[in-house]
Design a protein around this nucleic acid. Structure first.
Lengths: 158, 158
DNA sequence: CTATCTGCAAATCTTTTGCAACGGA
DNA sequence: TCCGTTGCAAAAGATTTGCAGATAG
């Protein structure tokens, strides 16, 4: 886990930079605080991370921030649509930017998480709609399986 | 949540009825106990259920069984290949028979779980293998989206 | 100023572990 | 009898809640 001071290179998607958070909060009568900015930065920075990982990251910039605040803030950021959480298969949910629409591929052998574009699911989504009247949300849940590396290892042993 | 006394209509897949559990356990030097049969019955009976739901079901037949035993037994049944767990998207994993290979469709609006045959995923599995060298395990993780009922409701309101 | 936020501590909830007693083979 | 298994209680880990003080607007 690195400790550098939160690069902002990719921190500004088309629809909003740092002050966009302030605006979004104010629209709903909520307040801008350093903690909220730090949590959002951490989520963007880490890609997809558990509340605890996010907390660690935040604390590397502001050690006084409590994990309670991280939980509350993630919940809030999700309610106002800035982040979303995904269930990667094990216990902890992971949070990422709302805009980052991708499918998670989780190897249940080594735990590695890969991302693929959501259009991978287009065919499946169409079939689900036709056959089961089900509108798929491709980025919410991860697909489980075995990655290349683990497959190779297994083959070597047999 | 119902409390009827555990129908056994679907409790005997081709490869093994009640005494198959005893045999499978003995093969590995493990012992047959009433608790283990009850937990396995509950898993088969409930289709896919959380440890707590399984425990409630088991206790309706044998109130003294402790939830600790349910956790340990599910773990054991999974290790010996009789049940498997699936992450339905919320917190708790759910357990079902190993043989029940199906894709779970979870509506994140009403929480309803539908099952579809795994061959729904065949096309996706092939693409993942080709494009990402990833071997998909279709029954381990649920797909999230919105079911017919909830979609209709939403449309009515707009 | 005032209502929203935060930090801290304690409460909850879920799952795991240690240990003595129980019971299957 | 012997050793795997169980129940109980307590531990451990994750998330939530209550409350008094801090602070954004």
């Amino acid at each position: 886990m690195e400790t550098r001071p939160a690069p902002e290179a990719t921190a500004e998607p088309a629809d909003g930079g740092p002050s966009a958070l302030r605006r979004t909060l104010h629209q709903r009568g909520l307040r801008m605080t350093p903690q909220r900015q730090l949590v959002l930065d951490a989520v963007r920075d880490l890609g997809h991370a558990t509340p605890e990982q996010i907390c660690t990251r935040v604390q590397s910039a502001a050690p006084a921030v409590n994990i309670t605040t991280v939980y509350r803030t993630l919940d809030l950021l999700e309610r106002i649509g800035l982040v979303r959480h995904t269930h990667l298969g094990h216990g902890a949910p992971t949070y990422s930017e709302q805009e980052h629409q991708h499918v998670h591929l989780v190897c249940h052998s080594c735990g590695k998480v890969t991302e693929s574009p959501t259009d991978l699911m287009d065919g499946l989504a169409a079939r689900l709609l036709a056959e089961s009247d089900f509108v798929l949300d491709p980025s919410h849940v991860a697909l489980s399986g075995r990655c290349r590396g683990c497959r190779d290892e297994e083959e070597e042993q047999s």
